[in-house]
Design a protein around this nucleic acid. Sequence first.
DNA 1: TAGGCCATCTGGTCCT
DNA 2: AGGACCAGATGGCCTA
Length: 193
Amino acid sequence: MKTKNRPPRRRAPVQHTEAIPGEGTPEGSLPNPGPEPSKGLRSRPARATAGARGEGGRRRPGPSGPGSRRDSSIQRRLESNERERQRMHKLNNAFQALREVIPHVRADKKLSKIETLTLAKNYIKSLTATILTMSSSRLPGLEGPGPKLYQHYHQQQQQQQQAAGGTLGATEAQPQGHLQRYSTQIHSFREGT
DNA sequence: TAGGCCATCTGGTCCT
DNA sequence: AGGACCAGATGGCCTA
């Protein structure tokens, strides 16, 4: 299912101030058996407290007083939440800027993040292919930037293939393949598929 | 109603 | 030490 024409949503920040590490953490409340091994580069141990929260996770309020250690922990957490929100807003702004420079997409359809990244990648590749084609056709022969560009491009492609374990498809490895891939993707977005 | 997408919270890890 | 980065969890909104 696709999300179309959805107005930007802004959820009011929820002030969850009860989730303080080591304080009032409920035991035996792990609906999820912990995450799978990390997908990222860094290894992450299973989170002991994951799943104990409902939208951020409310936990049993403990005793607190003005100026207590708990208060300073809560304050730090709130500041951290705010920074994280700002960081995500900046990331979303960057996504929006990227959407605006990808051509050939219906203006009334907002691309999702994954669509934006995929389309941008293929767009860049198709531009690269276009440049290579133009430069090599305009300056045939051994002189001029065309062949050098082409050589450079293929050297990069080969290096990337080796680094990726040679998983690049035959079509992907050809400049014309990028153009075809991009136009196919554009077509599917236009169709809303 | 199911599924996709997203915003937010959270805590662990890395970086400066 | 503090901030940035990251990924899991959760719940809301929307569309088919």
